[in-house]
Design a binder for these strands. Structure first.
Lengths: 216, 216
DNA sequence: TGTACATCAGTGAACGCGCGTTCACTGATGTAC
DNA sequence: TGTACATCAGTGAACGCGCGTTCACTGATGTAC
């Protein structure tokens, strides 16, 4: 460390060395604390211990940085869902459950990414890379649904696309309303995970994919 | 109209006459077009054809105005859900379906209210009136669920609170992801209403409240 | 190994802008008598 | 009905601020010879 202090970083010479990454970290920190609108280019630069003009060497403008955060968010999200699915092991049902938990876990552990992905209002048109990243995340859910549906005989097999949309919407709804760390969060007489798990169980029973008691 | 032009309003003398309402209208217009963060006190004043200091006669500050918009939003929302429920007529099932449609309809027709209510990050602590208004809206859903559950014999009756939380989360998820007018909206191979209706049907079947074919 | 030079990631000063908020004020309205 | 006055919703000018963005610049790094 030479002279200038900075956020949580360590070194500083004339060249920062890793400014691009530092700016993204700063964005995550700021978004987590103040929401996507509370993030400013100027503050991110300050956080990284760099002049306010420096970020322009790495991002066209403020929106480009947010879009990049959203993109990374989707990549991480996809990886986490994929890992939870784990090729349908140990069995389709358990793996499906794990995907649900991974969904909520991501929303809770990475509120800043989640925010940038779903609430920052980054326009998807004109950013095909971002759109594809979002679709890749959804594709994990969809593949899981397909595998899961395959246990049923073809004639009573529900449309996997619809099923995955339902699960996605339910997960997203629970995450937005109850599992986020922000000020508007509603309180709940159970954990979000329990709520999601119960909902998915009822839903799957309704599809005829699993059997069981109607109530507990 | 005397001299100063204004948004869509009509008159202007020295006294506006209805500035409080005009500012709220302005806020709705701005939020609908730019999101909750895109709303500024200054622009709302301009929209109403009034000096930038005038709003302070009616709202303590910017946040107070947004909180007021959210409050009205919840009141409207409650009224609309209530109307849809219509005391469970013509029958509990149909009425329940109507509530779902009303939910999505509100999110689509009143994106600005919806935004202020669920996305503006208005802190609920320290604003009991707002919190109660939100709970009142949810209470409609809950009462509907209770009435609906009552068709089942007590020993296989699902917990109505949980059921209403599931329906709420599913509706909110679909509304956020697919039914909103903003830029981040995902596209969908069916209407949000169809998606919600199908999801609720599956869910209710899973609870054993309705019977029916497993797939279509 | 040493020097010349191109490249590139930073600087820092400056800009114009719009915002939120305050202040002493003033014009319109409504009420008492 | 007319006048005096209190009340209150507006004005408009001013403030300090932080933002996004640009510019000519400069220090560090890496490469060619």
């Amino acid at each position: 460390m030479r002279w200038s202090e900075q956020g949580p970083g360590q070194r500083r010479g004339y060249h920062h060395g890793n400014l691009r990454e530092a700016l993204i970290e700063a964005a995550l920190d700021l978004i987590a604390r103040k929401g996507p609108a509370g993030f400013t280019f100027a503050e991110a630069a300050r956080w990284a211990g760099v002049s306010s003009a420096a970020p322009y060497r790495h991002f066209r403008d403020r929106d480009a940085l947010i879009a990049d955060v959203a993109l990374r968010g989707f990549e991480l999200f996809t990886a986490r869902l994929e890992e939870a699915w784990n090729h349908g092991r140990p069995d389709a049902f358990r793996a499906f459950e794990n995907v649900g938990h991974a969904y909520l876990g991501f929303a809770r552990d990475e509120p800043a990414y989640y925010s940038a992905m779903f609430e920052a209002g980054v326009p998807l048109d004109g950013n095909p890379e971002l759109r594809e990243a979002g679709e890749a995340a959804f594709a994990v859910l969809r593949r899981a649904a397909e595998t899961f549906c395959a246990r049923l005989p073809a004639e009573k097999r529900p449309p996997a696309l619809m099923m995955s949309l339902h699960i996605w919407a339910l997960s997203h709804g629970i995450a937005s309303l109850f599992a986020r760390g922000d000020a508007g969060r509603r309180s709940l007489p159970m954990t979000p995970e329990e709520l999601l798990e119960a909902g998915v169980l009822v839903y799957l029973r309704g599809l005829g994919i699993i059997e069981g008691e109607t109530t507990g």
